[in-house]
Write a protein that binds this DNA or RNA. Structure first.
Lengths: 362, 362
DNA sequence: GGTGTTTTGAGGTACGCAACTCATTTTGAG
DNA sequence: CTCAAAATGAGTTGCGTACCTCAAAACACC
């Protein structure tokens, strides 16, 4: 009827007695300090294993005295997603303070890898951990590796540098996100056939490129009735996205689906709206006859104030979302666990790809 | 360029000096102990506010010494979702041990409110916190209130008792979940019209009833082309669900959508499969002609080994999921925060309604 | 002014561990 | 066997809080 999940409450002293050594030796083993014979190390570790001993985090944290400092290196500029991450970090301030964790924000130009690398190098030595929204570039990779070598824990956030030796990546699998977007567009279009448009910031951005790759993959294999038009590069700007898309709508009458890979959502929505007005003017059918199914299926990314409104209005059909609050908290938790030498609850820290439609808006 | 988020590292001693009182008095104020003049209380609280002082959790945890004990009261029987929750709690064991948290599982019959109430009453006094998968029943409500009155922190898990004085509910909004299911079925069916079947465990279960309510709401207002058939009550059993559904398929040829509200997924899938074979035998069309769009759109709940397989095979189109790992961890974190008197990160502990399709399977 | 009560101060102990020192023992090389 | 180096033991201190005791001070009331 009742079953216990947790171990006993042993202390280091008990382990020392068990292993037949002194407290000092256990301490040396626990912290990989030199001066212990391999054989003794084994004995101590065995005693720890045998009792599945876990140092009391509170005691450890208290004893080490020094507060921990983390830095978040984020892109400058008005990116709403990044602003959300910062906001959620702000909400954690009481939580952080109670644990004597110092978190500092460092901003740097997104599109300048060498500036990012320099910012990272500048952090060396001052921080226990660094979370960085990274660019995949040799200089950045080197800077990350340098930090790791200096003993700083490093996690990449949102955008990964898999070739670096960063300890962890907190973010989604962008190829899977693109596949999900593709499946949604395809399924929501239904039996109709026609063309599908893609608007991205730039194909040079790793995350955008990966999403497009996943999207095309699904379209090619599963929705032969739909053909994907060449990618429009809107540079995440509203005006540019609107113009490019407007022109595309002009030259292709049979566009039934639209995937917006990055930002610039405002512009995309405007172009869509213009097209709808245009279509209505062209033929005399009543609105009810045009109906939902005549509309362009529109799938994008991230839940912001704008996409929330578009979802509620029915302009947007689904948003692929990575929960920024979860990402912020996961980054802090992972850094803390790494710094403490605790295991990471990988299931907990994994960022899911959320499909958000009108009725499950968070 | 760099901005700090966290406060200074004051201690109780500093607050005492600031307020012009002794450590003992600060301690009395902090823990609402009697014997302090209202005026002095005000002075101390002002000093705490002014410095936005947060007691060091590690020190507090260490000082109080006593380990905390939590109980999880869960339904007995082979419910895969509940088993997943238990499994995730098991994965946390190192995390729990490092914090000297004891978590115990208590199982009780799901469908017997008085047994549940008795189990809850039996816990009184022994635990700092209780998480319970509750039934909404007067006896259970009373038992929960008794626990709360005795100083035990109580959170309801998965299924709420809103009328009780439980401190927190960890679970999803089931009406919104039903609405989401409805929107998915409607949108994935596309332009076709026809009938939609619902299989539930029992309409007496609060969560099932709420989901059905939400589902019908969306169907009625947004998909006039689809008509919902009367709910089949499969009691979450495979065989019964299969039979009921098979009979329904026999009497209605134009079923285009199916919503499985609870468990019994295996049976539902079997009935669907039989129908597919049947349809193929009846007409001579090639499979390619029948195509995806002739299939019944199938939306259900929860990602289990079975639903995962069905999603990958394309039998199931989407699963509405509440992340069991998140629920388990959120319940523990909320209980811990309540026990410590810390604020709860409500955004973090909110359980989202996940839409899971093949490409964003976790 | 004296009495009893309430409020406050001062101080101690304990929690489990990190980090350190210094003395002592063990080990291995010559 | 000798001696230096390596390994280990024993012990101390401090982290910031909770919780406790006891005495002193302030207060209220008659």
């Amino acid at each position: 009827m009742a079953e216990t999940l947790t171990a006993t409450a042993l202390t280091l002293k008990d382990i020392a007695r068990e292993a037949g050594v002194s407290l000092a030796t256990v301490d040396r083993v626990l912290h990989n300090r030199p001066g212990v014979r391999p054989d003794t190390v084994r004995r101590v570790k065995a005693a720890i294993e045998r009792n599945s001993f876990q140092p009391h985090v509170a005691a450890a944290e208290l004893a080490r005295g020094r507060a921990r400092r983390f830095a978040f290196v984020m892109p400058s500029g008005p990116n709403p997603f990044m602003q959300q991450i910062e906001a959620y970090l702000g909400e954690m301030s009481a939580w952080l303070a109670a644990r004597r964790l110092g978190v500092e924000m460092v901003t740097t130009d997104v599109f300048d890898p060498s500036a990012l690398a320099a910012s990272l190098e500048a952090l060396s030595g001052d921080y226990d951990g660094v979370a960085v929204v990274a660019l995949d570039h040799p200089g950045v990779r080197a800077a990350i590796n340098d930090l790791v070598d200096a003993g700083t824990k490093v996690v990449t956030l949102v955008s990964d540098v898999p070739s670096s030796r960063r300890h962890h990546y907190v973010g989604i699998d962008n190829i899977a996100a693109g596949r999900t977007a593709g499946a949604l567009v395809g399924r929501l279009v239904g039996q109709r056939s026609g063309k599908v448009a893609i608007v991205a910031g730039s194909q040079g951005l790793r995350d955008h490129a990966e999403r497009i790759f996943g999207f095309n993959q699904v379209m090619a294999t599963e929705f032969p009735g739909l053909s994907v038009l060449p990618v429009l590069e809107g540079r995440d700007e509203d005006d540019r996205s609107e113009q490019l898309l407007g022109r595309l709508f002009g030259s292709h009458a049979d566009i039934v689906g639209l995937y917006n890979v990055g930002a610039g959502t405002q512009g995309v929505a405007k172009a869509l709206n213009d097209k709808a007005l245009n279509d209505k003017a062209l033929n005399d059918k009543a609105l009810s006859e045009v109906g939902r199914d005549k509309q362009v299926v529109f799938v994008g990314h991230d839940v912001t104030a704008l996409t929330r409104r578009l979802l509620l209005q029915g302009v947007m059909d689904a948003a692929i979302s990575q929960n920024p609050g979860h990402e912020a908290r996961a980054a802090v938790r992972v850094l803390l666990a790494l710094a403490r030498g605790e295991p990471i609850l990988s299931e907990q820290e994994k960022i899911r790809i959320d499909i958000v439609m009108r009725d499950n808006l968070p």
